[in-house]
Simulated scan of single mutants.
Amino acid sequence: MARWEPDARGRLLRAALELFAERGYDATTAAAIAERAGLTKTTLFRQFADKREILFQGQADSVRVADSAVRAAPAGASALEALREALAALCDGHTPDHRDTGRRIAPIVATSPELQERAGAKRASIAAALQGALADRTGDVDVAGALADLGVRAYYGGFDEWVVGDEDVPLREVVLTRLDRLVAGVGGALAPSAGRRR
């Protein structure tokens, strides 16, 4: 008889993080993760396609949040304001527990090309959601793509900064500050030089 436990996905994540840290990603089996979590391997595969996906749970939610937040921004909002709304919504989905989880996941991903590739795919899926929603607002796929790239860079860079930081600063503040800095930096880089001939 299969064992049932509440919060199976959370239990599997905690077990996977422990085992990946102890044994390494490649040496850890799905069966070992399920056993450590007090669940059956069948339960693990009902929740996730493979052990890799345990670390990337929540991707579908992130994509949905990014898309819907851009679309829910006020009609008069600029594309940049809509992007800020989306990043704020993504940040608000993170709890203090996610900060600790991020600290534990980062070194595991850094040791595995397979996990790095999967992390890139998750990042690309969020960027694509932002680009699609922004393109519908602006009518310009290229501008939407450039904004989405800035947004994803701000979100992931801000998350990395938040994870390693000691200050009790909300993720939203870190990410939006980074976005503002990126936008200002790009604008400055594109501005004509004062000494350039006109």
Score class of each variant (00 low, 15 high):
Arg3Trp: 10
Trp4Phe: 14
Trp4Met: 13
Asp7Val: 05
Gly10Gln: 01
Arg11Gly: 06
Leu12Tyr: 08
Leu13Glu: 03
Ala15Ser: 03
Leu17Thr: 00
Leu19Lys: 00
Arg23Pro: 01
Gly24Gln: 00
Tyr25Cys: 00
Asp26Tyr: 12
Ala27Glu: 13
Ala27Val: 03
Thr28His: 04
Thr28Tyr: 02
Ala30Tyr: 03
Ala31Phe: 09
Ile33Met: 02
Glu35Arg: 13
Glu35Phe: 02
Arg36Leu: 00
Leu39Ser: 02
Leu39Tyr: 04
Thr40Asp: 13
Thr40Arg: 07
Lys41Trp: 00
Thr43Met: 11
Leu44Tyr: 06
Asp50Tyr: 01
Arg52Cys: 13
Glu53Ala: 14
Ile54Val: 13
Gln57Glu: 12
Asp61Met: 13
Val63Met: 11
Asp67His: 14
Val70Lys: 02
Arg71Ser: 09
Ala73Leu: 03
Pro74Ser: 06
Leu80Tyr: 10
Leu80Arg: 14
Glu81Pro: 03
Glu81Ala: 14
Leu83Cys: 07
Ala86Gln: 05
Ala86His: 02
Leu87Met: 04
Leu87Trp: 04
Ala88Gln: 05
Leu90His: 02
Asp92Ala: 12
His94Phe: 15
Asp97Cys: 03
His98Ala: 13
His98Asp: 13
Asp100Leu: 15
Gly102Ile: 04
Arg103Cys: 02
Arg104Leu: 13
Arg104Tyr: 05
Ile105Val: 15
Ala106Cys: 07
Ala106Ile: 12
Val109Phe: 04
Val109Met: 07
Val109Asn: 06
Thr111Met: 12
Leu115Pro: 01
Leu115Asn: 01
Leu115Cys: 02
Gln116Ile: 08
Arg118Val: 09
Ala119Asp: 11
Ala119Gly: 12
Gly120Val: 07
Gly120Pro: 04
Ala121Leu: 14
Lys122Ala: 14
Arg123Asp: 11
Ala124His: 09
Ile126Gly: 05
Ala127Ile: 00
Ala127Tyr: 01
Ala129Thr: 00
Leu130Ser: 05
Gln131Cys: 11
Ala133Glu: 06
Leu134Lys: 03
Ala135Thr: 03
Asp136Cys: 08
Asp140Met: 09
Val141Glu: 15
Asp142Ala: 15
Val143Lys: 11
Val143Ser: 10
Gly145Val: 01
Leu147Tyr: 03
Ala148Trp: 04
Ala148Val: 05
Asp149Ile: 11
Leu150Tyr: 11
Gly151Asp: 07
Arg153His: 14
Arg153Leu: 15
Ala154Phe: 06
Ala154Leu: 05
Phe159Thr: 15
Phe159Glu: 10
Asp160Gly: 14
Glu161Pro: 04
Glu161Arg: 15
Trp162Ala: 02
Gly165Asn: 09
Gly165Ala: 15
Asp166Phe: 12
Asp166Leu: 12
Glu167Phe: 04
Asp168His: 08
Asp168Thr: 06
Pro170Lys: 12
Leu171Val: 05
Val174Arg: 07
Val175Leu: 10
Leu176Glu: 08
Leu182Asp: 00
Val183Tyr: 10
Ala184Trp: 08
Gly185Phe: 08
Gly185Gln: 10
Gly187Glu: 11
Gly188Gln: 08
Ala189Tyr: 09
Leu190Gly: 04
Ala191Gly: 06
Ala191Tyr: 07
Ala191His: 10
Ala191Thr: 13
Ala194Asn: 10
Ala194Val: 14
Arg196His: 11
Arg197Ile: 09
